[in-house]
Design a protein around this nucleic acid. Structure first.
Lengths: 197, 197
DNA sequence: CCCGGCATGTAATTTGTTACATGATTGA
DNA sequence: TCAATCATGTAACAAATTACATGCCGGG
């Protein structure tokens, strides 16, 4: 089998966590906590980051003058730092958007399991694949429900931001459907050693 | 938009590089260099690793007694270490295959770029998306050619190992086609602000 | 009264990337 | 002769994960 070019290992640039945070901040001032919430909610479909990552990156962004923060004293609660993106931050974000992004490398351990699969009974592998299929079923349903529920109004009337979120959801559905088709083919193959396609 | 459950951040276990190397070694004794070659060739479709990672992990595997190595003196070339998987290594691999794998987290910076997109002209974004589409076109063609060329014989007559590689290729094709459909929808959207679906 | 959510972080560890280093062989 | 490939690594750094830590508030 030939090597898969295009997906290289050595990628510099990227560092998209930094730029993702800047992107979130273009929507308005926010605390580290709120940014993290964003990662747990809307952004979770195409980016994940823990609060530790967010705080560290905010520290670096502040050092580099891409964000500023104001400490807000709160009664009862610990103080919070509200971050604002600076002109410099916007410039950095802009030039990141302008320069080409490399394709993301793929790592898929289910395939490694299949390759290693001869060391366990077929049923064990099948169970694992079926489990993945069930989880993917749920995700797909979840995506579809969200498409129907949140975006029942004509798409053109949504804000630009929501239109992008719709596209994110749409991508989720398409990729997951492909993934599911593949999982089903693997199940068929493992069940009777035949290929459907 | 609701959070995407299922794709969590905190994943322990995984550590599939270790297990991928063990899997490769079940096919026969190999040097670190040969394992790296494997990562550059067949495995590149679903796993990538640099030679530095491979050497480091081999060191750890040897420490833990999962592999042994024999130094082979070569004339003209530097000596090489031929690694063999041990009983212990096979056991560890087996229990890894047995325990469930979490779904891989997704990070997709093109979507971040779309979200941040309001800060640049539409044409800049379009160029980037079109570029991605062209690269994906190439990958898809490449996958298809390989399917036709390498697997023209009846699939059932292939070795189990090659059947798995076929499945890997098949997954590549399915996922990439979905990705392409999505990229086309994004292009349509950016070109005239309309949604086709 | 305990638990979960708010809100902030530090520290340790692992994993991945980049750069540096050596030295021989083979083909253009 | 020059570059590429074989073959092996070390070192430094960046990024991601896990665990630890604090302290207040509100609800069951």
């Amino acid at each position: 089998m030939q090597p898969c070019a295009y997906i290289g290992h050595g990628h510099k640039d990227s560092m998209a966590l930094r730029e993702t945070i800047l992107t979130v901040l273009t929507r308005g001032k926010m605390t580290g906590y709120e940014i993290t919430k964003h990662f747990d909610e809307v952004l979770s479909y195409f980016w994940q980051a823990s609060h530790q990552q967010v705080y560290r990156e905010l520290g670096r962004l502040a050092e580099d003058g891409c964000v500023t923060h104001k400490e807000v004293v709160q009664s009862g609660k610990p103080n919070k730092k509200v971050y604002t993106i600076t002109k410099r931050g916007r410039e950095e974000l802009q030039s990141w958007v302008r320069e080409p992004t490399p394709l993301a490398p793929q790592r898929y351990d289910l395939l490694v399991k299949l390759l290693a699969g001869t060391c366990v009974e077929n049923e064990v592998l099948l169970d694992e694949i079926r489990r993945h299929k069930m989880v993917t079923d749920e995700i797909r349903d979840n995506c579809r429900v969200m498409q129907d529920a949140c975006f029942s109004t004509p798409l053109e009337s949504l804000s630009k931001h929501d239109q992008i979120l719709y596209l994110a959801l749409r991508r989720g559905v398409l990729i997951i459907e492909a993934q599911q088709e593949w999982l089903q083919e693997v199940i068929d193959y493992l069940e009777d050693g035949r290929f459907k396609k």
